[in-house]
Amino acid sequence: MQGLPSPALLELKNIEAMYNGIVLAVKGISLAVRQGGCTALLGGNGAGKSTTLKAISGILLAENGEVNSGEIVFGGERISGVVADRIVRRGISHVMEGRRPLSHLTVEQNLVAGGSTLKSGAEARQRIEYVYQTIPRLADLRKRTAGYLSGGEQQMMVIGRGLMSKPKLMLLDEPSLGLAPKITEDIFALLATLRSDGLSLLIVEQNTRAALKIADTAYVMETGRIVMEGSAEEIASNEDVREFYLGLDKEGKRKSFREVKHYRRRKRWLG
Rank of each mutant, 00 (worst) to 15 (best):
E108V: 07
G114F: 04
E222L: 06
L169W: 07
L190P: 00
K168C: 02
K255L: 15
L202R: 08
F244Q: 14
Q206Y: 01
G98H: 06
D173A: 00
S103I: 08
A40D: 04
H104D: 14
Y148N: 14
V23R: 10
R254S: 13
G147Q: 11
Y132A: 05
S103C: 05
K119A: 14
I15T: 04
L111Y: 07
G36C: 02
G37P: 03
V220L: 12
P175W: 00
R142G: 04
Q109H: 11
E129R: 14
L191M: 15
G36R: 06
G115L: 03
L246P: 09
R225W: 04
E239P: 10
G98D: 07
R86L: 09
S69V: 01
E239T: 10
E174P: 05
I183R: 07
M164K: 12
F188V: 01
Y245D: 04
T145A: 10
I235K: 03
D186T: 02
A192Q: 06
L194E: 02
G70W: 05
G252K: 08
I187C: 04
D249N: 15
E174W: 01
V227Q: 05
Q155R: 10
Q133C: 09
S176P: 08
R127V: 01
L31I: 01
E108Q: 15
R90S: 12
A146H: 10
L53N: 11
G121K: 14
G230N: 03
K255S: 06
H262R: 15
A84D: 12
D186V: 01
I135C: 07
E66W: 11
W269M: 11
K261E: 15
G37Y: 02
G178R: 06
V83P: 15
L42T: 01
G151Y: 07
N238I: 00
T51D: 12
R100D: 04
Y19K: 05
L105Q: 10
G75H: 06
I87W: 08
Y263W: 10
L61P: 11
N14V: 04
I187A: 02
